[in-house]
Design a binder for these strands. Structure first.
Length: 581
RNA sequence: GGCGCCGUGGCCAAGUGGCUAAGGCAACGGAUUGCAAAUCCGUCAUCCCCGGUUCGAAUCCGGGCGGCGCCUCCA
């Protein structure tokens, strides 16, 4: 496991045997989350899953900063309370985490709930001479901490800033606030130094101690938090406790807009005035979709990243695609964010969904109901000379090796694809779909292989629940498909092929659809949630009838027109299936 | 200016001293299909440049060139 403190990978060892404490810096909830806020949660969700798989008892804490200057400003701006601003954005944050499959966080402590702990640490730091009160504020005196700068590799003299607006209250310009006195009307808490609120850095020292202890295993956050936030946390906690705060400081890479310098949500993005024309198209080599193209090409993608944008992105792409997009690469590397890249990731994912359907066709069972080993040792198995299972076991081993190497989810993902190919090949070679009753041993191999795939996918948090059929577009699709059926019927009638025309109408009865032939054309009404599939089945039946009658013009027309609507048909031994792209 | 990171095929990306440089997307050829789709098989890179260390480097060192982050709120 890599540590920012030592700048190298170190063997994994825990503070307490068998237990792991993880603290991840969460959001300051003054506004909606953007996709950059999801990188840490997604990777740490994987880390927790993997450590549990390896047998550790893991406690994962993600803090919520719900008191801060930005929150106060936002509340004043909107004329509501700071608490209301926080609640609203916390709800948004949780919605986003859920959508991306991040469900393993144990505690979401809020700064406002930890005032006693915060004040206690500040008091201790003052007693020990590391901090001083000044005009109602309390500052940490950086020069008193000989270790200050060890995380970000800076010396105090290098960091002499201008001290900000409170420079006149500080002994040293690099000193930072532990406690800030309240201005009239601002949210405030009682303290030995008067009414005020905590500084940003101290809350993390307090919350981590409260939930994980004075020394814990892993502390994470974005690379942009190394300085000053984490540097200051170390200073506070280690001076207060006289012992190391964290064994592994873990920092994820930042998301970058594909066509603009600067991280997503960062300063460069806001300041960017020079567009980079044509850049986005060169990233993927394909024409991006309208809205994203404009935003990316102009260098500002705020709508697709900022307020509400993440929820919309999730609505368009689905959480699993976004998660997959984020985990395809190593967590410490910079990721270029653009929507076509997420779509591309989704194409890869669909291969897995098709494999799961294939499994269902063969066995009548669902991949999502398969049981998989949830412990590393339990997943070990002997291939017993079976060539397929031998390949599966090799894949699993490579996957684990990748995860063991600083949680290399990118490398591990490759093995997932490799495994899918092995399984598809097995299905092909054993003709599991063609034969009515496939050999039991071949099916057993299939199930074992898929169970192993599931074991691996679980660690990355993929395929936990079946993807939901697109609900919003289905109504529009139904209308289009119905028009197609009606056209077909009209053609049949025109050709005096009344048998087909009547078949169509007769089949609509059970679906609750009524057809009415009027002067201006045929109208339809009725239908329910299951209608679309019923209509599709009818179309499939009509196409089959045309094929049997060698009427390939009609059968191909049906398929092509459905393709134009984004519906693909797949002919298989057991019948034809349809799916919406 | 200080402290760091990165540069692998058309695109994304793993690999950080040693078998034929994973995997995905795209493309092309083949098997399969009435034609398709799906699936499988195959084709497609010597790793930004220069120099050095080494029996041996994409991987280590030095120097270039190019991109990026932090130093101020930030996942």
């Amino acid at each position: 496991m890599y540590s920012t403190l030592s700048k190298k990978k170190e063997p994994f060892r825990t503070v307490r045997p068998g237990k792991v404490g993880i603290y991840l810096c969460g959001p300051t909830v003054y506004d909606k989350a953007h996709i950059g806020h999801m990188v840490g949660p997604v990777i740490f969700d994987c880390i927790k899953r993997y450590l549990k798989y390896c047998g550790y008892d893991v406690t994962w804490v993600v803090n919520i900063t719900d008191v801060d200057d930005k929150l106060i400003h936002k509340a004043n701006e909107r004329g509501i309370s700071m608490l209301d601003v926080a609640e609203e954005n916390i709800a948004d944050y949780h919605f986003n985490l859920d959508a991306l499959g991040v469900d393993s966080v144990d505690h979401f402590p809020r700064a406002t709930e930890c005032m006693d702990e915060i004040i206690a640490i500040v008091e201790t730091l003052i007693e020990q001479g590391f901090a001083y009160a000044s005009a109602g504020d309390v500052y940490f005196e950086v020069s008193k901490d000989a270790q200050y700068g060890k995380l970000s590799n800076r010396s105090v003299t290098e960091m002499q800033g201008e001290g900000g607006g409170t420079a006149d209250r500080k002994r040293g310009l690099a000193d930072f606030a532990l406690w800030k006195s309240a201005k009239p009307g601002e949210p405030a808490w009682d303290s030995p130094w008067g009414q005020g609120r905590p500084g940003w850095h101290i809350e993390c020292s307090a919350m981590s101690r409260k939930l994980l202890g004075e020394t814990f295993d892993i502390h994470g956050g974005g690379l942009d938090l190394v300085f000053p936030h984490h540097e200051n946390e170390i200073a506070q906690s280690e001076c207060c406790h006289g012992k190391p705060m964290v064994t592994y400081w873990t920092h994820n890479g930042l998301l970058r807009a594909s066509s603009a310098a600067g991280k997503v949500g960062g300063r460069a993005e806001r300041d960017s005035t020079e567009p980079a024309p044509g850049e986005v198209a060169s990233v993927t080599g394909e024409a991006p979709t309208s809205a994203t193209a404009e935003e990316a090409a102009s260098g500002k993608m705020s709508r697709s990243k900022g307020a509400g944008g993440l929820a919309q992105l999730i609505a368009r792409q689905g959480g699993e695609r976004i998660r997959f997009f984020l985990l395809r690469t190593h967590y410490r590397s910079t990721v270029l964010f653009n929507e076509p890249a997420i779509e591309e990731a989704g194409v890869g994912l669909e291969g897995f969904y098709r494999l799961f359907k294939r499994y269902t066709r063969i066995t009548g069972k669902s991949f999502y109901d398969l049981t998989a080993a949830d412990k590393r040792a339990a997943g070990e198995f002997a291939p017993a000379g079976d060539a397929v299972l031998t390949a599966v076991a090799t894949c699993r081993k490579k996957f684990i090796t990748a995860m063991d190497d600083d949680f290399n989810t990118g490398g591990a993902t490759g093995e997932l694809f490799e495994l899918a190919k092995i399984i598809n090949k097995h299905c092909d070679e054993q003709k599991l779909e063609e034969t009515g009753t496939p050999a039991a041993t071949a099916v057993a191999t299939l199930e074992k292989s898929l169970s192993t795939l599931k074991e691996m996918a679980n660690l990355l948090g993929f395929f936990l629940v079946a993807p939901v059929q697109s609900g919003g577009s289905s109504d529009a699709l139904l209308g289009q498909v119905m028009q197609l059926v009606i056209d077909l019927r009209s053609e049949s009638r025109a050709k005096k092929n009344f048998a087909t025309a009547d078949t169509i109408r007769d089949c609509f009865g059970p679906l609750g659809i009524v057809l009415e032939d009027r002067a201006g054309g045929t109208e339809w009404s009725g239908g329910s949630a299951d209608t679309l599939d019923g209509v599709m089945q009818l179309l499939i039946k009509l196409r089959q009838a045309a094929r049997v009658g060698k009427d390939f013009v009609t059968s191909d027309a049906i398929r092509d027109r459905l393709a134009a609507l984004g519906v693909t048909l797949e002919d298989r031994a057991g019948g034809t299936e349809w799916s919406k792209s």
